[in-house]
Amino acid sequence: MAGLVTFAVNAQSADLKVGYVQVDKILQEAPQTAESGKKLEREFSPRSQELDRMAKQIKDLEATLDKEGLTISEAERRNKERDVQNIKIEFQRKQRELREDINLRKNEELGSLQDRVNKAVQSVSEAEGYDLVVYSGVAYASKKIDITDKVLKMLGKK
């Protein structure tokens, strides 16, 4: 607490220029966020469509099995049930792999966006002579030190 008071007193006497950035707002509103989402959607759309086809195939096979279940032989019914089960296992495996791959790519895209945000914050800070800029996680920050919109402008939002 004493260190914070000392910082506040020193900041006042040195005319420190302090800024604050709302990272969550930037991550939501930056045009790169939407671009990234569309890029990931295009990248994973074929695999997602394949899973949709497999889900429909499973549903159709189960419906056929229910309808024909009493009219086919026990051995044929067991074979069809086994086929359905194998497809379900394959579907679950592909579904899990897709989720994992999407999460990896989202993290890569987020890392790239964070680098761009950091560079934009640094550019705004240097251009406007800020001595200290802090990110979210601050207990209180006055609107007059919030430079979030300036960073968004640097990223091409406004």
Score class of each variant (00 low, 15 high):
Gly3Ala: 09
Leu4Phe: 10
Leu4Trp: 03
Thr6Gln: 12
Ala8Ser: 13
Val9Pro: 04
Lys17Arg: 14
Lys17Asp: 01
Lys17Thr: 06
Tyr20Met: 09
Gln22Glu: 14
Asp24Ile: 04
Glu29Leu: 12
Ala30Thr: 07
Pro31Leu: 02
Pro31Glu: 07
Glu35His: 07
Ser36Gly: 12
Gly37Tyr: 00
Lys38Ile: 03
Leu40Val: 01
Leu40Thr: 03
Glu41Thr: 07
Glu43Met: 13
Glu43Ala: 08
Ser48His: 04
Gln49Tyr: 00
Arg53Tyr: 05
Ala55Gln: 15
Ala55Arg: 13
Ile58Trp: 01
Asp60Phe: 00
Leu61Phe: 02
Glu62Ile: 05
Asp66His: 07
Asp66Ile: 03
Asp66Ser: 15
Asp66Cys: 00
Lys67Cys: 00
Lys67Glu: 15
Glu68Ser: 13
Gly69Tyr: 07
Leu70Arg: 08
Thr71Gly: 10
Ile72Ser: 06
Asn79Gly: 12
Asn79Glu: 14
Glu81Lys: 01
Glu81Gln: 09
Arg82Thr: 11
Arg82His: 09
Val84Glu: 01
Val84Thr: 04
Gln85Trp: 01
Ile89Gln: 10
Phe91Glu: 05
Phe91Met: 04
Gln95His: 03
Glu97Phe: 06
Asn103Arg: 14
Asn103Gly: 11
Arg105Lys: 12
Arg105Asp: 05
Lys106Gly: 02
Asn107Ile: 02
Glu109Phe: 05
Glu109Ile: 00
Ser112Tyr: 02
Ser112Asp: 09
Leu113Cys: 09
Val117Ala: 03
Val117Leu: 13
Asn118His: 13
Ala120Ile: 06
Gln122Cys: 04
Leu132Ala: 05
Leu132Phe: 13
Val134Arg: 12
Tyr135Asp: 10
Ala139Phe: 08
Tyr140Ala: 11
Tyr140Gly: 07
Ala141Lys: 05
Ser142Glu: 10
Ile145Gly: 04
Asp146Arg: 09
Asp149Lys: 12
Leu152Pro: 05
Lys157Val: 08
